[in-house]
Nucleic acid binder design. Structure first.
Lengths: 122, 122
DNA sequence: TGTCAATATACCCGTAATGGAATATACCTG
DNA sequence: CAGGTATATTCCATTACGGGTATATTGACA
């Protein structure tokens, strides 16, 4: 993906919030729904947009799809994602998202059972 | 302008090239036309887009409009413009633009008579 | 196999963006 | 004022985007 493509991914608020959150580690769709408080179809479509452009990858884990940032980002992509994280540090919306993320699944970052903590898993 | 607005400005190839060039200093529309090799209306409209969003400013100098980057960019804007300059260092299109810029008006960076060197100023 | 939960896709609509052709505006100069 | 140059704007067609509703797909599990 070239530089323009990167910026096209970044130029929507929902996608920005998604990418910012993914900076913390992999997340599944239900997490995004809860943190962003946006309808499922909206979250799913933006994730699809990012995946179609190679910005994120998705892995199925049972019923859930786990999204994560591209493993080997280009120099350009890495630089811009770092810039995003930096800019987000002062933005209340991004910070609130981080708060919600921490409340949802403490210590999710490495541990895999993504949706265990967030959903009623009968 | 918020972060999304910044990325919206950056998500078009022509605007990216314009902003990259403006990193070298103020330029007038005719310079952009010659360097980008794009029609006048296209250049002018993208410049208008950037100006409407406060990304660049314009100053009239006789017949010519001199465009320059915003004097006091926000932290976010400054960070992203720096990131752009960094990414452009490896991109042949951006580098070719710089080449053309240098050929057009050597030593323009500080000196003001923007279009003196580039146009036949009878 | 049937049902349920999680996610994705199809379809539709309103809006914005892009680009070109033609025209308008602003300024300079004689 | 007239004519020319530089730039902006208007109009138009095309396309992309964002969001919503409804529906389809996928996998788990009884």
């Amino acid at each position: 993906m070239d530089l323009v493509g990167i910026y096209q991914c970044l130029c929507d608020r929902t996608r920005l919030r998604i990418l910012h959150l993914l900076g913390q580690g992999p997340l599944c769709v239900c997490h995004f729904q809860k943190i962003l408080q946006e309808p499922q179809v909206k979250v799913s479509k933006h994730l699809g947009y990012l995946r179609a452009r190679g910005m994120v990858r998705s892995d199925r884990r049972g019923n859930w799809m786990i999204y994560s940032l591209q493993a080997k980002p280009s120099r350009e992509l890495a630089a811009n994602l770092a810039c995003l994280q930096d800019c987000a540090r002062e933005d209340p919306v991004f910070q609130r998202d981080l708060e919600r993320l921490r409340k949802l699944s403490p210590g999710f970052a490495e541990s895999s059972p993504c949706c265990r903590a967030a959903t009623v898993h009968r």
